[in-house]
Design a protein around this nucleic acid. Sequence first.
DNA 1: AGTCATTGCACCATCGATTGTGCAAAAAAG
DNA 2: CTTTTTTGCACAATCGATGGTGCAATGACT
Lengths: 352, 352
Amino acid sequence: MTDIGKKKATIYDLSMLSGASPSTVSAVLNGSWRKRRIKEATAQLIQKLANEHGYTANLQARGLRSSRSGLVGLLLPVHDNRYFSSMAQSFEAQVRSRGQCPLVVSACRDPEEERKVVATLISYSIDELFIAGATDPDGVHKVCEKAGLKHVNIDLPGTLAPSIISDNHEGARMLTQAIIERAQEDGPLSPDDLYLFGGRNDHASHERIRGFRDVKRALLGADPDVCIQPTGYSPAMTARAFEAFYEGHGKLPRAFFVNSSINLEGLMRFLALHPHETFADIIVGCYDYDPFGSFLPFPVFMIRQDSETMITKGFAILDADRRPPITHLVRPTLVPPRTALTGPLDALKDIE
Amino acid sequence: MTDIGKKKATIYDLSMLSGASPSTVSAVLNGSWRKRRIKEATAQLIQKLANEHGYTANLQARGLRSSRSGLVGLLLPVHDNRYFSSMAQSFEAQVRSRGQCPLVVSACRDPEEERKVVATLISYSIDELFIAGATDPDGVHKVCEKAGLKHVNIDLPGTLAPSIISDNHEGARMLTQAIIERAQEDGPLSPDDLYLFGGRNDHASHERIRGFRDVKRALLGADPDVCIQPTGYSPAMTARAFEAFYEGHGKLPRAFFVNSSINLEGLMRFLALHPHETFADIIVGCYDYDPFGSFLPFPVFMIRQDSETMITKGFAILDADRRPPITHLVRPTLVPPRTALTGPLDALKDIE
DNA sequence: AGTCATTGCACCATCGATTGTGCAAAAAAG
DNA sequence: CTTTTTTGCACAATCGATGGTGCAATGACT
């Protein structure tokens, strides 16, 4: 309030004003003053001046000197998806509560872009990095390692760094079972009636497909390959797969498992082009939770991945002394159709 | 590749290796070497060495010296919402294409938190700031001004800095008209059949409510106050408002306008507690677009705000010499029910 | 050969904070 | 009234990059 629009106050300014040396000012303001045996009165004077002049430390200078920035990075495939944005939200809260500053960036599942983005983060001397859903976690790992940057993988595992991922196999089993049981309420379900769409050649997809096939075989007795349609992650490709099926069969499968909410958007694109009757009786499972997706005009079972716990575990691992490249599983939960879970949004400040 | 896990190379290391002075190395690596009349051969030698040793500039040091960081901030209320996460996605792309680094943070619509978060960003010497959906834009403005930080408001306007917002009045008119016309297909609509839920005491809500009332009065002849329910922004409060209406009337209004997709989540919470018949025939308008929200089991008209254009305009304003505190309107678009728009997700690298 | 312009680069202060070290003054001990 | 200990702080180097300034070497020109 005291200075109007001036340059920001530095420890040198406060040094002049207080008559103390810059190093004393620094010690007072960064809390190390007791250790440095600064008189209480001196400290208070300096703190008062700092408040009056709205002093805030220049974190670039601090970071340069101490080679720590207080920045913690989170690398996402995209922001624009409830799973990842909810992860960003949890991440932010936890980073803040540790007194650090979150830096959330996305790299569009492009391995080259992933490495470039991480290199940029490294240039800012970030202290730690969470790598979520990277296409090439090990490639990113190498970049981090060269820079001596602590990091963990979230959601998609790597082989070189510790990974914390959803228990995809178990989650897929729960989801598949739920779909089957629900579909059987409408009459017997043949193996040809149950498909899986989406996913690709990554660990998560493999495990989910494995879980799906296990349960399907156990409950329906067979598991033809044709029912597995790994369309990649894009909504466009997924929509094309639904379209192709529809053209071949004149309808959608009675029940199907969608690999992620991004793939589920592909289903929306299909739906937009077809009348309501086309999908009047389908049963859908989606490996991801989205509050609106849960209320679509057909039953949608969803899997809510526990990104909050993943982040928490991630920090625990980063804080540990040794960080062996082990994969930790976090159990997701099955969300029945028409369920509105509370989430980070409820942290919104509002007249409650 | 050459150094394994060592400390990062600096211009001093390259200076030793090349025999040139640190300032020459610096000039070569930051591109100012022609201006400094460095011999082409010298430059190439240094660049070769830099590549071999995987040199990347320490951006904290550069930022400290040049008092610019290359960071551009975006302050959001929350990540976990398609409107804001899509804004984050556009923002990121545009910041990257300008060769800067995006820094997206959220502040939970808490004015105190907003200022604190911005103060942190300022400590990192960010170059520019986009303030999106701030509860107290002018409070944030003051913090920015003291630090000499260029900034614009997005989505919610302030009086002290330039603002770029959705044309809320026009958007609300379009949306209201669409709801009414659709509802009238099912028979005559009385003014008591059309409600508005959500929003609060902010500029956007005012304008939307004004647009709603204008059109309602024009088309339905009346516009009773009781039909306006500004429940705040939280899903919980919005759900409570639906619940209250339902208790009083045994049903939901035939048609209603929901102020935002966050409020629409409140509707989901209500729906989860009630049988399907409760809302078999409702017509909903939501001032925000969400791809799954568009396919709910009743007609949902949505307004897609053009955050891409808002960000573009924001940069144009920041780049301008003068920045008068003017409010710029960006026209949103009406999205009919059952529409799957393409979006940032389509930038995902995938087998297309 | 002498003057002048140009080329090519090195030197050094600087950005703001951190931190190891040293030293005077005050307090305690003898 | 010394000697020792403790208190309280100042000094200066450092982190890595930037950019103004100065100066030697080379070439051009008279």
